[in-house]
């Protein structure tokens, strides 16, 4: 073969069909912005219904997760996400979809080895590294407050 590894990598890179970045970003902006606005509307609604500030703030992500979980079950979420891209991935909806989709997918492998382990396949890393970062920050924060005193 006359083409070397380096030449081929360059050839493949130079000829990679470009993602429609502008279109993807417009969709991501519109869907992401819309989901956050729905969250804001829910916050107002919960407060109007008499929930306390903190409770209302907790209920917003829970409600968005609840909606996403059912949209995933009915097979609607992945069709939206095909266009929305990061617009549905980055809001809490993306986390919810990442929890429920492997759970549905692995039913045939049983409730413990299938659903039980796979439900954490994407949520697991998010919870792990989030907790890790928060504990590190907690220790630093503790030291800072001690020093301040």
């Amino acid at each position: 073969m006359k083409t070397t590894k380096e030449e081929y990598k360059k050839l493949a890179k130079d000829n990679t069909p470009r993602s429609p970045v502008l279109r993807d970003c417009v969709f991501a902006f519109l869907f992401g912005g819309a989901i956050c606005s729905v969250g804001q509307a829910l916050l107002g609604l919960f407060k109007a219904l008499g929930a306390e500030e903190e409770t209302a703030k907790t209920l917003v992500p829970c409600t968005l997760i609840f909606i996403t979980v059912w949209l995933t079950g009915f097979g609607i979420f992945d069709r939206i996400a095909r266009y929305a891209g990061a617009g549905t991935l980055v809001p809490i909806t993306g986390f919810a979809n990442a929890v429920v989709s492997p759970a549905i997918d692995n039913k045939a492998e049983g409730w413990v080895p299938g659903v039980g382990t796979k439900i954490f396949s994407v949520a697991g890393p998010v919870i792990l590294f989030g907790t890790l970062a928060s504990v590190v920050w907690g220790v630093v924060y503790y030291v800072m407050t001690c020093v301040m005193k």
């Binding site: 069909p17 993602s19 979420f77 095909r82 266009y83």
Partner: peptide
Amino acid sequence: ERQYRTPIEYGSLRAQT
């Protein structure tokens, strides 16, 4: 999809290639 990529109902944008 299940073995090589993502769960079937997982929502994502697919690469052009």
